[in-house]
């Protein structure tokens, strides 16, 4: 049972991603037109599923507070900083949160960052896709943390770098599925080309952040994670006498 609960996330994600990929191959079945509607539906379904997963587990008040904080920090990372307008460490923050606190926390931090920052910056059709993309970044980093807990700086730097492009891919999906026809690889490449430089910048920024500050930030989070567990011991008799 515990196994299934743990594996629910990876399975759900694989299932939805599979559905997305399959859809491109068999779009004739759906008259080709339907994907503008179906893609957001799938994304929203995926989000619902992932939130449902968060609702099912047991979460202590400490975890709720920490997850919310990590999400807020990532959201603050989206706000352009006067001296460095193009550098936004949101993805980096989400990845290290997931890596240290696990897939569930990673997803919540990522999707929270997207939704909450958009409360202030303005919601748009991109909101669910951003929630999904960052949520997935956090989840996948969490899975990395479980499978390769010793993943070092190099591996995670490459991982963060790839997420720059992957993030762009996911964000392009909505323009592509909604407004381009037919859905073939040529049209996808054309859509992607438009955002290529932006994504390269994003990926490089992620990699730079992880390369330079990943290990120290991860250390901070790991040091803090230990404080989340509460252990209660009785006072040893000897001590008690000493105290009196």
């Amino acid at each position: 049972m515990a196994f299934w609960r743990k594996m629910l996330f990876p399975f759900a994600l694989v299932f939805i991603l599979g559905l997305l990929l399959a859809s491109i191959k068999i779009n004739a079945l759906l008259l080709g037109q339907g994907w503008g509607l179906l893609a957001p539906v799938i994304i929203i379904m995926a989000l619902v599923l992932l939130y449902w997963g968060f609702e099912q587990g047991r979460v202590s008040s400490r975890e709720v507070a920490v997850i919310a904080m990590l999400g807020t920090i990532a959201a603050v990372g989206r706000v352009p900083f006067a001296a460095l307008p193009n550098i936004q460490p949101a993805t980096f923050m989400v990845i290290i949160s997931g890596f240290v606190f696990g897939p569930r926390a990673g997803f919540m931090a990522g999707s929270t960052a997207a939704l909450v920052s958009n409360f202030f910056l303005g919601q748009g059709p991109w909101t669910p896709w951003q929630m999904f993309a960052w949520g997935l970044a956090g989840t996948s980093a969490g899975v990395m943390g479980i499978i390769f807990p010793r993943a070092g700086k190099k591996v995670m730097t490459v991982f963060s770098f790839l997420w720059g492009y992957l993030f762009g891919c996911i964000m392009n999906l909505w323009t592509w599925t909604g407004f381009v026809h037919p859905l073939n690889w040529q049209s996808f490449v054309a859509t992607y080309a438009a955002s290529f430089w932006f994504d390269t910048f994003h990926a490089t920024g992620n990699a730079a952040f992880y390369l330079l500050f990943g290990p120290s930030f991860v250390k901070i989070l790991q040091r803090f994670r230990r404080k989340l567990e509460v252990t209660l011991l009785p006072v040893i008799e000897g001590d008690k006498n000493a105290a009196l």
């Binding site: 008040s61 567990e229 509460v230 209660l232 011991l233 001590d239 008690k240 105290a243």
Partner: peptide, 10 residues
Amino acid sequence: PDFYGGRFGG
């Protein structure tokens, strides 16, 4: 000790 843990006596 509920929230903090630690060692509790009395």
